[in-house]
Simulated assay, not measured.
Amino acid sequence: MSAASNQVTRDDVERVVRSVLSRQFGQSPAASTTSTPSGKPNPLVVNISARHCHLTDEHIEILFGKGHKLNPIKWLYQDGYYAAEETVAIVGPRRRMLPEVRVLGPSRGASQVELAFTDAISLGLDIPVRISGDVAGTPGCLIVGPKGSLELHEGVIRAMRHVHMSPADMAAYGVKDKDLMQLKVESPGCSTTLENVSVRGGDDKIKLEVHLDTDEGNAINLPNATHVQLLKQNDSSCGCLA
């Protein structure tokens, strides 16, 4: 057999991926730990956010068919946001792929893929750590759905660890939007402090919630954590949240 006949084409990839995508999974996109802070207005929730993507309305129709709307299967902690029934395949430059990547809703103004570091290594992508929405100059990928595919020219990132805060939460912790914080976690065998947790300020409807990616959550054994503490960066005076 010649070398040319062994080459994997885009059509081959799409055919295999569509076969895989015919099976829909209902796995939870996150694991979490909750703590009730003393003297703070809201409980602290720390969630592991698994690999996922956000899509525009145009890209939803390309991938799932004209007029298609996302179907929520699980509502997330922040009101109005959900894990959709729909999944896509993410294909890297070496034609390696992640076959079942959950779409989160609602739709957005720009499509974006959020992966963990190990996901990126698997795909052969060199992705930067960025705040969601900051995708200029980032790598792209091929996204494949059951009805079509599209080439995303940029938008694949590793989401910077961050904490969503309402104005009341920011006032209570003495921080503002884009400030950096620390998350101290005590868990069996691997207690640690995560630096550079970016504050994402929002309105009064926002709930206090830290987002970590899968690699980070697994490394600190977050589901079995016994004690969590959110502090201003390089400031140990903010108090215990457990």
Rank of each mutant, 00 (worst) to 15 (best):
A3C: 05
A4Y: 06
Q7Y: 04
R15T: 13
V16D: 01
V17C: 12
R18T: 07
R18H: 08
F25I: 08
Q27K: 11
P29N: 14
A30T: 15
A30Q: 08
S32L: 12
S35R: 04
G39W: 06
P41E: 03
L44D: 00
V45W: 02
S49L: 13
S49G: 13
A50H: 06
A50G: 12
A50T: 09
R51H: 09
H54K: 13
H59S: 04
H59R: 11
E61C: 05
I62Y: 03
G65S: 11
H68G: 05
L70C: 09
K74N: 04
W75Q: 08
W75E: 10
L76I: 03
P93V: 06
P93F: 06
M97G: 02
V103M: 08
S107T: 15
S107N: 12
A110R: 15
A110Q: 14
A116G: 14
A116I: 03
T118E: 14
T118H: 14
D119H: 13
I121F: 02
P128C: 11
V129D: 05
S132P: 01
S132M: 01
S132N: 02
G133E: 08
G133Y: 08
V144K: 00
V144A: 00
G145C: 12
K147H: 13
K147R: 15
S149A: 15
E151Q: 15
L152M: 15
I157V: 15
M160H: 08
H162K: 12
H162W: 10
P167F: 02
A168R: 04
D169F: 07
M170L: 07
M170Q: 15
M181I: 12
E186S: 07
P188I: 07
T193K: 05
N196P: 02
V197F: 00
R200I: 02
I206C: 10
K207Q: 14
N218I: 06
P223E: 11
N224Y: 08
L230R: 03
L230F: 08
N234P: 00
D235C: 13
S236Q: 06
S236A: 13
G239R: 06
